[in-house]
Design a protein around this nucleic acid. Structure first.
Length: 421
RNA sequence: GGAGAGAUGGCCGAGUAUGGUCGAAGGCGCUCGCCUGCUAAGCGAGUGUACGCCCAAAAGGUGUACCGAGGGUUCAAAUCCCUCUCUCUCCGCCA
């Protein structure tokens, strides 16, 4: 959520910044509503003061045995007026809040301006594309021939875009989860196991609601949503909290399954593990001081990169342009891993600085040097998407004979050097 | 799922029977100052958040709201009534 005062104070600036990300907002309407809001507050608070003062007088008069019928009748009218104004205020504030909750974040000034993903800018690269003396296969072929994943059973048990990991497939997935958690723990993130179901308030805190309800699996009966990422419970761990400055940055990590409806992506990535309704992810989250959140983003990116480096996977990092930025993010780096079986790079991690956008929604604050309360900055990144790491290993470490070599760093976790039939 | 108890400031805890002078006693903690070889103890002062208004602005001042959440009664609600949520205890069921 943007600061209302920022919008009313610099309407042109906000309008232009949002235009960069293809968002038009009705500033006039916001200004009008805010003015109305303040007018009502002024009015109703004056009446409340009158009522408070008079009520005290009534108490005194009554004690002295005086007559209060006339004055209390007068106050009854005042009270009616107050409740009318209170209702008006509530309406205006609700309308305003709904508008604000649907406005995306302002891009950081270092974010390249562009309308879509084609304008994303290469930030850095690691390693090289591996060369093969045979035609590398797509991971779904490898997974099926080695009996690592049963795609049909996933569809049978649930529906399409669900799959079943079997045998060494399941073991490899678990090995990756443990490996990632260990590395991120070493990187200074405190390990957390959060709920996988959260309520609407929590979803609103990080920006999934109200705008992206369509993307979420919901348990109607219990008014709970399956988390689409551990970012949601991890960040909201600090909702409605005033932290002390010394606590910052807070660093937490969690492995969770993630659930996404993938509404509107019919026909996209239908084969393999790329786009699933349920996938595993190790997430890293930071609550940072506003003064160094940009530096923290760089460090967080490095923490995510480290996993790929240790696994010996080639990747590149893209700075997302304004038009490709997620709703809540002010700046995002996507890490894209090389997939030789598909001859392309695919996103395996997304590292973002949300600045005070989520903090304002969720009420994540800290007390600064001057003892003033200030919104903290929130950041997160995948460290990494486990399913996509799994498939990247299959495609990058496949051998001519159909087997898959296990990256060195993973061997202690898996117990074998090579996965064969 | 059944029965009961409870939810008050950073924490503990009074206030709720008899509605008004209660943003809320007292204690602890914390901050600042004093005192003191050091520490402890002691003494003094301060110590919530949000929003509005005043102020060029910071500081500050002032007003409103907030005693789990929402609604109701009343001139007036921490206090009375209703609904909900959460916590605890006991019983049942269960990984």
């Amino acid at each position: 959520m943007l600061d209302l005062k920022l919008i009313t104070g610099n309407p042109e600036y906000v309008k232009n910044e949002l235009k960069k990300r293809n968002t038009e907002i009705d500033i006039e309407n916001i200004l009008k509503l805010d003015e109305e809001r303040r007018k009502i507050i002024l009015n109703v608070e004056e009446l409340k003061k009158l009522r408070n003062d008079t009520s005290k007088e009534i108490g005194i008069i009554k004690k002295q045995g005086g007559d209060i019928s006339e004055i209390s009748a007068r106050m009854k009218k005042v009270s009616e007026e107050i409740s009318e104004l209170d209702n008006m205020l509530k309406n205006v504030e609700e309308t305003l809040k709904n508008i604000l909750l649907n406005i995306p974040n302002i891009p950081d000034e270092t974010v390249p301006v562009g309308s879509d993903e084609n304008a994303n800018v290469l930030y850095k690269e690691y390693g090289h594309k591996p060369s093969f003396d045979f035609e590398p296969k797509a991971h779904w072929e490898i997974a099926e021939s080695l009996n690592l994943v049963d795609f049909e059973k996933g569809a049978t048990l649930a529906k399409s875009r669900f799959s079943v990991y079997t045998g060494f497939g399941a073991k490899l997935e678990r090995a990756l989860i443990n490996f990632m958690l260990d590395v991120q723990s070493e990187n200074g993130y405190k390990e957390i196991i959060p709920p996988f179901l959260v309520n609407a308030n929590t979803m609103t805190g990080t920006g999934q609601l109200p705008k992206f309800e369509e993307e979420l699996f919901k348990c109607e009966r219990d008014e709970l949503y399956l988390i689409p990422t551990a970012e949601v419970p991890l960040t909201n761990l600090y909702a409605d909290t005033i932290l002390s400055e010394e606590d910052l940055p807070i660093k937490v990590t969690a492995y969770t399954p993630c659930f996404r409806r993938e509404a509107g992506s019919y026909g996209k990535d239908v084969r393999g593990l790329i786009r699933q309704h349920q996938f595993n992810k190790v997430e890293i989250v930071k609550i940072a001081h506003p003064e160094n959140s940009m530096m923290e983003l760089e460090l967080l990116l490095e923490d995510a990169e480290k996993i790929l480096q240790m696994l010996g996977l080639h990747y590149r990092v893209m700075t997302l342009c304004t038009g490709d930025l997620g709703f809540s993010s002010s700046k995002t780096y996507d890490i894209e891993v090389w997939l030789p079986g598909q001859n392309c790079y695919r996103e395996i991690s997304s590292c973002s600085n949300f600045k005070d956008f989520q903090a304002r929604r969720a009420g994540i604050k800290f007390r600064n040097k001057n003892k003033k309360v200030e919104f903290a900055h929130t950041l997160n990144g995948s460290g990494l998407a486990v399913g996509r790491t799994f498939l990247a290993i299959l495609e990058n470490y496949q051998q001519k004979d159909g087997s898959v070599v296990v990256p060195e760093a993973l061997r202690p976790y898996l117990g074998v050097d090579i996965i064969t039939k």
